[in-house]
C-alpha cells in the first residue's frame, strides 16, 4: 500500500496502483492519474464517458465493467477497438486506475 498525493489529497493506492477506497476519488485527480499511467492526452469527452461509466457500474454492481460491456454500453460512444486507442494498455487496467476503482475479479 502506498499513499499518493493527488489534487492536494492523500490517497491510498494498492501495490498495483489501484484505489483502495473508490470514494477517495475526485474528477480533479484524473489529469494527474492519466499522465502517471501513460494515457495519451489530451483527455477527451470519450475518455470521460468511459471513466464515468466505469464508476457507475462499479457502484451499481460492485465490480467494474468488462471491456466488452464498455464497448456495448449506450453511455459510451466508442467501440472496443477505439477503447484501446483511448487506453492503450487496456481499459480494465488503465481506465480502472484513472477511475479510482479496482480491476474486475473472477470467482476464485
Amino acid at each position: 500500500m502506498t499513499i499518493a498525493r493527488l489534487a492536494g489529497v492523500d490517497v491510498q493506492l494498492n501495490d498495483e496502483g489501484f484505489f483502495v477506497d473508490p470514494d477517495q476519488w475526485t474528477p480533479e485527480m484524473v489529469p494527474q492519474l492519466a499522465e502517471e499511467w501513460g494515457v495519451p492526452g489530451p483527455l477527451t469527452d470519450q475518455h470521460w464517458e468511459v471513466l464515468n461509466f466505469m464508476r457507475k457500474e462499479y457502484f451499481e454492481k460492485g465490480t467494474g465493467p468488462t471491456v466488452r460491456k464498455l464497448g456495448k454500453s449506450a453511455d459510451v460512444s466508442v467501440g472496443v477497438k477505439e477503447l484501446y486507442q483511448l487506453f492503450p494498455d487496456g481499459p480494465a487496467k488503465l481506465a480502472a486506475r484513472c477511475a479510482g476503482i479496482p480491476k474486475p475479479k473472477g470467482c476464485i
Binding site: 468488462t66 480494465a92 474486475p104 473472477g106
Partner: peptide
C-alpha cells in the same frame, strides 16, 4: 489465456492454488 489478471484472482485462493 484469460482476460483477468490471473488464473486465480482472489488472494486466498491464489495463495493456496
Amino acid at each position: 489465456v484469460t482476460p483477468l489478471d490471473g488464473a486465480f484472482t482472489k488472494p486466498v485462493a491464489s495463495n493456496a492454488l
